[in-house]
Amino acid sequence: MINNQKQKTQTIQVKRRGIVYLVKDRCKGCGFCIEFCPMGVLKPSKDFNAQGYHYPILVEEPPNKVCIACGFCTVICPEFAIYAEPMEEEKK
């Protein structure tokens, strides 16, 4: 289910884009969002947050390697730190 999706995304036509939000200082750096984002657009930061953890940063490469607002990071995050919402002017 989660396996190999990074390769598949090369051929997927992106239908929807998302905006990723982060409450930076809640993150405890578990890396779940980074590991399981199906588009592979999250990476660990070089900086530390106030708790001393590496929080996720967004690295998009439009048009195809972008957040699609699938919402997986929103629900897997144990700290209620990250969430994504679809962009308003979607459907392109």
């Binding site: 884009r17 905006i19 990723v20 982060l22 409450v23 996720p56 209620f80």
Partner: peptide, 10 residues
């Protein structure tokens, strides 16, 4: 679109 730093979660 860069990541948006916010204070509240959904």
């Amino acid at each position: 679109m860069p990541m948006q730093f916010v204070k509240y979660h959904v």
